Amino acid sequence: MSTPEERLAGLGLTLPEVVPPLAAYVPAVRTGDHVYTSGQLPLVDGKLAVTGKVGADLDADLAKEQARICALNALAAVASVAGGLSNIVRIVKVVGFVASAPGFTGQPQVINGASELLGEVFGDAGRHARSAVGVAVLPLDAPVEVELIAEVR
């Protein structure tokens, strides 16, 4: 049986540094056996690879890849207050926001990028409740933002 860290490495991924807050908040808060993350943007090395509205400036497949990056950043935030990925018991809830062009209705498919990564890393413990919401605009003109709640030991 492999650990979440080993499964992440098997995907060719490493846990990034926790993304510093863009305003007056913290990346994650632990209360009891749960960690709540702030919304995580698809920042890599402090930068967005793409910006704009899904369905106008970028397609759903590229946005799905960005949601995967958001989930990786969220896992880094959880691990930072839980003592590592192996202390995550299960992913409880994911909320995904998609900056959507008028008429774009593929928000669930975009946020699957985050959900699928969590399943690959945690197996059944990565299955979660979820909301996928279309919004007019996100911070820094990001196409997606993801937050999650995790149960930890």
Rank of each mutant, 00 (worst) to 15 (best):
G10T: 01
A71N: 07
A125M: 12
G10E: 01
L138W: 05
G32S: 07
V35C: 06
L140C: 12
G12P: 01
Q109P: 02
V78F: 12
L11A: 00
V19E: 15
A23S: 14
L22V: 13
G46T: 08
G55E: 05
L15S: 14
A136F: 02
R68S: 03
D59Q: 04
C70D: 13
K47I: 04
V121W: 09
E6K: 07
D59S: 10
V110M: 10
L22C: 06
V50A: 15
A9T: 10
H34S: 15
L22Y: 13
R30P: 12
P102L: 09
V152A: 05
G10D: 05
A76Y: 09
G55I: 13
G10S: 01
P102W: 03
S38M: 07
G119F: 11
G83M: 00
L43H: 08
E151A: 15
P139S: 09
A99V: 01
S100T: 05
G46Y: 07
L85G: 02
R7S: 08
I149K: 11
I111R: 02
P102R: 03
S2E: 15
T105A: 12
F104S: 02
S80G: 01
D45K: 11
K64T: 09
P4L: 15
V78A: 07
I88Q: 06
A150L: 14
V135F: 03
E5S: 13
L13E: 04
E17C: 06
E145Q: 14
H34W: 09
M1Y: 10
T14V: 08
D141V: 12
E116Y: 07
V146W: 09
K53A: 10
G55L: 10
P4R: 15
S2Q: 13
A132K: 05
L148D: 13
G39R: 11
H34A: 14
S115N: 13
L140S: 13
T37E: 14
P20M: 15
K47T: 04
G83E: 00
